[in-house]
């Protein structure tokens, strides 16, 4: 069961609070579109600092949503990230809840955790 943002009847309560933070949403959305993505690509696409990105990746990794692979290309260390099956499923559920909210625009505002 994915962590949701509340217990009410509004669809927003079904939003996964791990994904529903601006930076983490961007990370998960990028990894959902990609088979895998490089750390620097994510940093540049999401426009965040290395440390903030690392912090959010750690949260997603802890939740079992993201897989981190480290390697070397020549002498340079590279970090590759991908979504786990659990992360992919959680994102699919998150998107379906979002669609539900968008269909009812009067109820569209949701608070995001930082």
């Amino acid at each position: 069961m994915t962590p949701a943002t509340g217990n009410g009847h509004h669809p927003r309560h079904k939003l996964d609070e791990i994904i529903h933070a601006p930076v983490r949403l961007s990370i998960v959305a990028a990894l959902a579109a990609a088979e895998k993505a490089e750390f620097r690509f994510l940093r540049d696409t999401i426009e965040v600092s290395d440390s903030l990105l690392s912090k959010h990746i750690a949260t997603l990794e802890e939740a079992g949503y993201v897989r981190v692979q480290k390697g070397f290309v020549g002498k340079r260390a590279r970090t590759w990230l991908s979504l786990t099956d659990r992360g992919r499923k959680a994102f699919a559920e998150y998107v379906s809840v979002l669609q539900e909210i968008v269909k009812n625009p009067t109820k569209g505002t949701v608070d995001a955790p930082h």
């Binding site: 998107v95 979002l98 995001a112």
Partner: peptide, 24 residues
């Protein structure tokens, strides 16, 4: 990327589409 606490569903959808375009 914003860090607003008031995060609308439409903004979330727009961000997903933007990131998808970047990956493509």
């Amino acid at each position: 990327m914003r860090s607003d606490s008031d995060f609308r569903a439409e903004q979330a959808v727009a961000e997903i589409k933007r990131v998808d375009r970047e990956v493509r």
